[in-house]
Amino acid sequence: MAINLSKGQKVDLTKTNPGLSKILVGLGWDTNKYDGGGQFDLDVSVFLLAASGKVEGEKNFVFYNNTSNENGSVVHTGDNRTGEGDGDDEQIKVELAAVPADVEKIAFAITIYDAETRNQNFGQVSNAYIRILNEASSEELIKFDLGEDFSIETGVVVGELYRHSGEWKFSAVGSGYKDGLGGLARDFGLN
Rank of each mutant, 00 (worst) to 15 (best):
V99L: 06
K54I: 04
S73M: 08
V74C: 05
G78R: 09
A136D: 15
K178W: 15
S175T: 13
A128C: 03
W168L: 06
G189K: 06
N127Q: 13
K7M: 06
S171T: 12
D145G: 06
S73F: 10
V74I: 12
S126W: 14
L42T: 07
A185D: 10
Q39N: 13
D114T: 06
D35T: 15
G78M: 10
D102S: 10
S138V: 12
F108R: 02
E167H: 07
T31R: 13
Q124N: 06
A115R: 03
L96K: 09
G174E: 11
N134Y: 14
F170C: 03
D41M: 09
V55H: 04
E84W: 02
G28T: 06
G182N: 15
A115I: 02
R81L: 11
Y113E: 08
T111P: 00
G37S: 10
T117C: 01
D149V: 06
N134V: 13
N32D: 12
I23W: 06
T14I: 14
L42K: 08
T82A: 04
V157Y: 00
N80P: 00
L190E: 04
I132S: 05
K54V: 03
G182D: 15
E167C: 00
E90T: 03
D89H: 02
H76G: 00
N32E: 13
A2T: 12
E148F: 09
G36E: 13
Q91S: 07
N191S: 10
S137Q: 13
D89R: 01
I3Q: 04
L42P: 01
V75Y: 03
L24S: 08
E153F: 00
I92F: 02
Q91M: 07
E135Q: 15
A115P: 01
N71S: 07
G36Q: 07
S21C: 11
I106W: 09
N134L: 14
K93H: 05
I23Y: 05
F108A: 02
N60A: 08
G189Y: 13
I23G: 02
E95N: 09
G19L: 14
E160H: 01
Q120M: 05
G37P: 04
G180D: 14
T16G: 02
G72C: 05
K15Y: 11
N32V: 08
A185I: 05
A50D: 10
E104S: 05
V125P: 00
N65Q: 15
Y162S: 01
E84L: 01
A107F: 02
P18D: 15
L181P: 01
K22S: 11
A109D: 06
K143H: 10
Y64P: 03
Q39G: 11
S21L: 14
I23P: 01
G72M: 09
L181N: 07
I112R: 02
A51C: 01
A109M: 05
V158C: 00
S151Q: 14
L24R: 12
V46A: 02
L161Y: 09
G180M: 08
E135S: 11
F188G: 00
L42Y: 09
G57P: 00
E148T: 12
Y162H: 04
G26F: 10
N4V: 03
Q39D: 15
N134S: 11
D43S: 07
F122P: 01
P100M: 07
Q9K: 11
V55Q: 05
A97H: 08
A51N: 07
F170H: 07
F144K: 01
D114E: 15
N65W: 12
